[in-house]
Amino acid sequence: MREILPALGRWYAEGEPFGLATVVSVSRSAPRGPGAAMAVGPDDEVVGSVSGGCVEGAVFELAKEVLADGEARLQTFGYSDEDAFAVGLTCGGEITLLVRPVSPSADTVFGAVADSVAGHRPVTAATVVDGPAPRGAALAVWTDRVSGSLGSPGLDAAVTADARGGLAQGATGLRHYGPQGQRREDEVSVFLHSFAPPPRMLVFGAIDYAAAVARIGDFLGYRVTVCDARPVFATPKRFPGGVEVVVDWPHRYLDRTETDARTVICVLTHDPKFDVPLLELALRRPAAYIGAMGSRRTHDDRVKRLREAGLDEQRLARLRSPVGLDLGARTPEEVAVSVAAEIVALRWGGSGAPLTATAGAIHPAGAATI
């Protein structure tokens, strides 16, 4: 939903009601994960998507219906041989959608959630999906406050505790409770949609390859910073508009920059005076991915220097070097694709093999949207 929130926030601020369909659960090879969303707004304008185009027509009609009568609906789309010409998912999976009307009167917290996401402030939007609690009731949970209600103080308290517990990881999915928030009951289904700030991508070395990696990182939703000690290369005009450019020694910048378990670090300097001090520091701190560009000879020399700096084999094993998957890439843009492919594969546990050479579900069950 994050990508369509600017449009939704604008409609909400202007008092324009819209129908919002959100994927709340998936099974088997579903094309989109929990949290994917589509909305129908003023003049039948459509933003977002909940599938690969299989069910969007039916969802459009559902959104119009909830706008007309103000009643939220729960709808499941799947596929079976017996019903092959009905609306459904040709991929063989199944998705369940919550379709509800949103306006300042129907949902008093939506605007605050949209503002927090735009300002990179973590927030979880909790919505009742099914059960005796009012379907579509919404509660917004921040680290220091809450707004709205799901229908009972006990349910609000239980959901608030779970939302804050999962907020740091950006965990999104269904939770089940009793009507008063009882942990061992499941009459009430609540969808917790966590909006953690975008993960960071730190790119060191302001070369042509860095510009390409920064572009694809921005496209994938990372908050990208490019750092280089050489001001002649580290100029904003060489990089996309949303990319931060910093002139500083790479290890000095990293030393004062917070990283976490979602941070991606790409070292493209392939110069020992830059990358050895930088990697020594990077490999001692949390990060999802640490990759370094260079030949195999450069890699061997780099690892030797890092060992001499005191890094053990466990830390060295975190280093992805030479950076990227073997795609036969040559141009900066092709290399950026190979780097992005390795990051995505590592993030989701993908093999990097061609899908034609694999078997089983393309989208593994239980994958979470982060």
Rank of each mutant, 00 (worst) to 15 (best):
R2H: 12
P6C: 03
A13P: 04
A13S: 08
A13H: 07
E14M: 02
G15S: 09
F18R: 09
G19T: 02
L20F: 04
L20E: 01
V26N: 01
R28L: 14
R28E: 14
P31I: 07
G33E: 11
A36Y: 06
A36D: 06
A37L: 00
A37W: 02
A39Q: 03
V40R: 11
V40S: 04
V47E: 01
G48Y: 11
G53S: 05
E61L: 15
E61Y: 14
A63D: 08
E65H: 13
L67G: 12
D69N: 08
G70M: 02
L74Q: 01
L74C: 06
L74G: 04
V87C: 15
I95T: 10
L97P: 00
L97C: 00
V99F: 03
R100S: 01
V102K: 01
V102G: 01
S103G: 08
P104M: 15
A106M: 01
V109D: 00
V113R: 08
V117P: 03
G119V: 13
H120M: 13
P122F: 14
T124W: 05
A126V: 00
D130I: 03
P132H: 02
P132R: 04
A133H: 00
L139E: 02
L139S: 04
R145E: 11
S149Q: 00
L155M: 03
L155D: 02
T160H: 10
G166A: 06
G166R: 09
A168Q: 13
G170V: 10
T172Q: 09
T172E: 06
R175C: 09
H176S: 12
H176K: 06
Q182Y: 08
V188I: 01
F191S: 05
F195T: 06
P198W: 07
M201W: 09
V203D: 04
G205M: 05
D208W: 07
Y209V: 15
Y209K: 10
I216N: 03
V224E: 03
V224W: 06
V226R: 02
A229K: 04
R230G: 12
P231K: 10
V232Q: 15
T235H: 12
F239D: 05
E244H: 09
E244F: 12
V247L: 11
W249Y: 02
H251Y: 06
Y253F: 15
L254S: 02
L254E: 02
R256H: 04
T263S: 10
V264Y: 11
I265E: 07
I265P: 11
V267C: 14
D271I: 07
D271E: 12
D271Y: 09
V276Y: 01
L278C: 03
E280Q: 13
L281Q: 01
L281A: 13
I290D: 08
I290T: 09
G294K: 00
D301C: 13
V303D: 00
E308A: 08
D312M: 11
R315I: 02
L316S: 09
L316I: 09
L319F: 07
L319T: 03
L319V: 06
R320H: 12
R320N: 08
V323T: 06
V335T: 05
A341K: 03
A345T: 07
R347P: 15
G349C: 11
A353P: 04
A357D: 11
A357W: 05
A359R: 15
A359E: 15
I362C: 12
P364W: 05
A367V: 15
I370F: 15
